[in-house]
Amino acid sequence: MEYPNIGVIGAGTIGTEVAQSLAQAGHLVVLVDIETEILDRARCDIGKNLKYASLFDAKVRETSHADILSRIDFTTDYRRMAEVGLVVDNSTESWPIKEAVFRQLDRTCPPDCILAANTSAISITRLAGTTQRPDRVIGVHFMNPVFRKAVVEVVKGWHTSDATVEAVRCFLGGLGKRAIVANDMPGFVSNRVLMLAINEAIFVVQDRVATPADVDEIFVKCLAHEMGPLATADLIGLDTVLLTLDVLYESYRDGKFRACPLLRQMVDAGLHGRKSGKGFFDYSGQRGLRWT
């Protein structure tokens, strides 16, 4: 295994799923976050995820969940990044936060370590410019839920070397995932398009054209989408959707990326989607989704 030790920054929803996937593939993982409480929640969530996955996946069912968890070191100590060969950063979609994280990683990680940004929209070239290793900075956009996605959007920055792209392609192949390589522009392919659809769907609800349930049913039943745009937003996290739209608006200065006022209001109200129990739909009951 080319990268036996891998660092993961951020123990939120996506970072936790990335750490779990890596541990299941046999990697030793150093999962770093700034708060012990967040790390404790991540450990609990991975245990629950493994139990749930074992209902559908015989391989997970036959593997010791304790062994998988033992491969993950949950820590607040960035100095542990000095031991890894590749880092996947999942920190908050905010330039000041990402900038600070990448400067810290560049100081701490070995010189040949690849720094992979799991970012929704922030420019990989801009992130690389904060380091002394721009050829080893790359975008690796895992999407939620990580264990169900067979493809990963890989983003090549201005200075990202072909060797780094190939190394990451092989690394993802070891996880059973295929890389699709895109060039670097904010939002890349997926979120440059997806966020527009989500944002416009929220405008449709704000303008009382249709309820969230009806909006999503049209996409699922008429357009054969696996999930409607509003349920997708709830899954991503409405706070993350808002941060991503703000990054896109700042990057392109194009009004089409202006976040819907209803989205901003819901985030202010703490309605962040699945992770808060309520967003465009209510996830707290046993009867399925309900418009709040």
Score class of each variant (00 low, 15 high):
Glu250Phe: 04
Asp45Thr: 11
Arg258Phe: 04
Gly157Lys: 01
Val32Tyr: 11
Asn90His: 14
Met185Trp: 05
Lys156His: 04
Thr108Ile: 15
Gly173Asp: 03
His272Arg: 12
Ile124Trp: 08
Gln265Leu: 11
Arg148Ile: 02
Ala53His: 14
Phe147Asn: 10
Glu17Ala: 15
Val32Gly: 06
Val137Cys: 04
Arg264Glu: 15
Ile46Gly: 10
Ile14Val: 15
Cys222Trp: 01
Leu245Ser: 06
Lys177Cys: 03
Val205Asn: 08
Gly187His: 09
Thr108Glu: 08
Met195Asn: 14
Gly285Phe: 09
Ile138His: 00
Ala100Val: 05
Tyr3Asp: 03
Trp291Gly: 02
Ala11Trp: 10
Gly228Lys: 06
Phe147His: 14
Gly173Ala: 09
Asp254Gly: 08
Met227Cys: 08
Glu166Cys: 02
Val87Gly: 09
Trp291Lys: 03
Glu2Asn: 13
Ala23Arg: 03
Ser54Met: 13
Leu235Arg: 14
Arg80Gln: 09
Ile6Leu: 02
Gly237Val: 14
Phe281Pro: 12
Ser251Leu: 09
Leu196Trp: 06
Val60Gly: 04
Ala210His: 14
Ala167Cys: 00
Ser70Gln: 13
Arg80Met: 07
Leu230Trp: 11
Gln20Asn: 05
Pro111Trp: 01
Asp216Lys: 07
Ala182Phe: 12
Thr75Leu: 08
Gly157Met: 03
Thr292Trp: 09
Gly7Val: 09
Asn199Lys: 13
Asn191Ile: 03
Ala163Leu: 03
Val8Ala: 10
Gln20Val: 12
Val140Arg: 02
Gly176Lys: 06
Thr76Met: 10
Thr125His: 04
Ala82Val: 02
Glu35Arg: 15
Asn118Lys: 06
Gly10Trp: 11
Lys59Met: 06
Ser284Ala: 09
Thr211Phe: 07
Thr164Ala: 08
Met143Phe: 09
Ala117Met: 06
His65Gly: 15
Ala100Glu: 07
Asp45Trp: 09
Gly174Gln: 09
Asp207Asn: 13
Leu175Met: 05
Leu86Gln: 02
Ala23Val: 02
Ile68Tyr: 12
Lys177Met: 05
Pro261Arg: 08
His272Tyr: 13
Ala233Met: 04
Leu262Gly: 01
Gly173Trp: 12
Met81Glu: 07
Arg148Asp: 03
Asp282Val: 13
Trp158Lys: 01
Leu127Glu: 03
Arg71Val: 11
Arg126Thr: 01
Ser123Pro: 06
Leu172His: 04
Glu153Asp: 02
Lys221Phe: 11
Thr160Gly: 00
Thr164His: 04
Val101Ser: 01
Ala213Gln: 12
Ala58His: 12
His225Lys: 08
Val152Tyr: 01
His272Trp: 13
Leu238Cys: 06
Cys113Phe: 00
Arg79Ser: 13
Ala23Ile: 07
Val84Asn: 03
Thr92Arg: 12
Ile124Gln: 00
Val101Glu: 04
Arg264Pro: 00
Phe56Leu: 08
